[in-house]
Design a protein around this nucleic acid. Sequence first.
DNA 1: CGACTCCTTGACAGCGTTCAACAGTAGTGG
DNA 2: CCACTACTGTTGAACGCTGTCAAGGAGTCG
Lengths: 228, 228
Amino acid sequence: MFARRNTSPTFGFKPLGDFRLMSRTNPTVFLNEYTYKKGTEIYGEKEPADYVYQVKIGAVRSYKLLSDGRRLIGAFHLVGDIFGSTGGGENHRFTTEAVVDTTLRLIKRQSLDLMAKEDAVLTRNLLGVTAKSLRHAEDQMLLLGRKGALERVAGFLLEMDKRLATAGAMTLPMGRHDIADHLGLTLETVSRSLSRLRRTGAISFIGYRQRDIILVNREQLRSLDLQG
Amino acid sequence: MFARRNTSPTFGFKPLGDFRLMSRTNPTVFLNEYTYKKGTEIYGEKEPADYVYQVKIGAVRSYKLLSDGRRLIGAFHLVGDIFGSTGGGENHRFTTEAVVDTTLRLIKRQSLDLMAKEDAVLTRNLLGVTAKSLRHAEDQMLLLGRKGALERVAGFLLEMDKRLATAGAMTLPMGRHDIADHLGLTLETVSRSLSRLRRTGAISFIGYRQRDIILVNREQLRSLDLQG
DNA sequence: CGACTCCTTGACAGCGTTCAACAGTAGTGG
DNA sequence: CCACTACTGTTGAACGCTGTCAAGGAGTCG
């Protein structure tokens, strides 16, 4: 159902200094860049975690599957986001795929771990990355456990608005199916919720592209998406 | 609805060496012990995170509320568990309460942070605690987003069985309402699911105490709780 | 142009919630 | 120690939100 071919990543070697995990005492961490075509797998669940990644261009989904095919997308990783860090664990806990054509920066985790043993700054940066993932997961638990469909979709739009932040309108990189599997809904319910938000004037689609969305009334969305 | 009186904790001063976060290079961390009566708050969401805690006796629930009163219990902390670490953040992200009369070990986070600045071992232990919380939250997302009621309850029983591990039977410290708010269900659905598991012979209650449960057929429970 | 993907919309079913009644237990105060 | 009350858990009935099934439109790609 969700089977994908695993295309070899395009190779691109390049030392770069923009990685947030960068150590201060050991600033010469060499980074590779790879480009993944839309839909290709970056790594699989339970595979050894050899790299940590940062999104340079594109978007990534990381998900878990139940044995009968049900899928939950734990997170979308957008430009600038760091993912693949397991917080010390040996294996990945999610499968990740490129949502669209995506370029990633890579750093070997082995060298990272060796450095972290003697580099408190780097370790604390790793802690920061892990803590950020934890905060997101905690909020997502509340959403999945206790919010209705309209609240989930409204909350998702507000989050994407913050993270994509392209003046006025935003273009969602992912389709309805991905959104549904992130919000614990079906794609039909996501579609109906979006239509309802459009009818009530909270959002607006641009032209025929159903992924180009304007948040017309953020206040209305926020009132739908109750906070703690 | 969930209002509780905040009883002052019983004071008990005691240096102890059993805290897993303990630094190797700085082994003289002094710990306090406090006892909280059933139902009392340990700390509130958004309060400054001044301490990290370890459960010595009892059980703790940590939860978030929506403004209309809906509650999601993100985690139960049982004997030995460490909680309250925010992974570097300044404020707590959950409210925590004692589920039953509970004794905790405390360590001042300020001293922890100061030490961690120069102590890579301690920082990596903090990272380990945070990573463990993250793993639990990730599994809980899958449960809340994609599992049915019976699967959730079966999975919960198996998890509690592992963590409580009292030969043969286990005594759940929390009531149906707490279980429901942890699993994203209502207490009625939890009760019905448990009754159904009892009727099908997967579990059994001991005497009249509905919190004393024997997992008669773990294999049956595992087949209900699909894994990835 | 045809096949495919993605999205929307409608009709209907089902799972879990809501509302309600009841029983057993624990807690409280006389 | 008992009576009273509150709390906890179970069960039933009806409702409603979301899922399932199905059809169709619009855009994309070869």
